[in-house]
Amino acid sequence: MLEKLVKWARIKSPWILHFNTGACNACDIEVLAVLTPRFDVERVGILLKGSPRHADVLVCSGPVTRQVKNRIVRIYEQMPEPKFVMAIGSCASAGNVFRGCYNVYEGIDKIIPVDIYVPGCPPRPEAIVDGVVKLLNKLKEGS
């Protein structure tokens, strides 16, 4: 009974942690733009949080650079279960133009498991909202 309540609460308002693993910043600006009045994702109940311990969803952009790898693993471990990872942008999904660069792991799924990929360079804010909605559906079906 309690589980159902928690699940309902999570679906109704997932808390998001945003992390940039070496991206050019375009995807991050689009994630921020999603919060602004034009696209306004807060009306769906999504809240951007600063700390891993409160987050349900880790939203990641950027091809993972070597320096950042340990930090992203640490953040992932600090998040409480159940947790979900969303890879924003082509860099996070597969490395994008940085494939073949030293100092870069090509994509977040080389480091932590990913649930949703949102391709694009950068993906439009509408695509990011679509990704979030798909994630919420996945949550509903029972992770």
Binding site: G22, P63, T65, Q67, V97, G100, C101, Y102, N103, V104
Partner: peptide
């Protein structure tokens, strides 16, 4: 610094 260093200058040569 160093978190965002992707090795672009080397990649340009290839």
């Amino acid at each position: 610094l160093g978190y965002n260093h992707r090795g672009i200058e080397k990649a340009c040569e290839e």
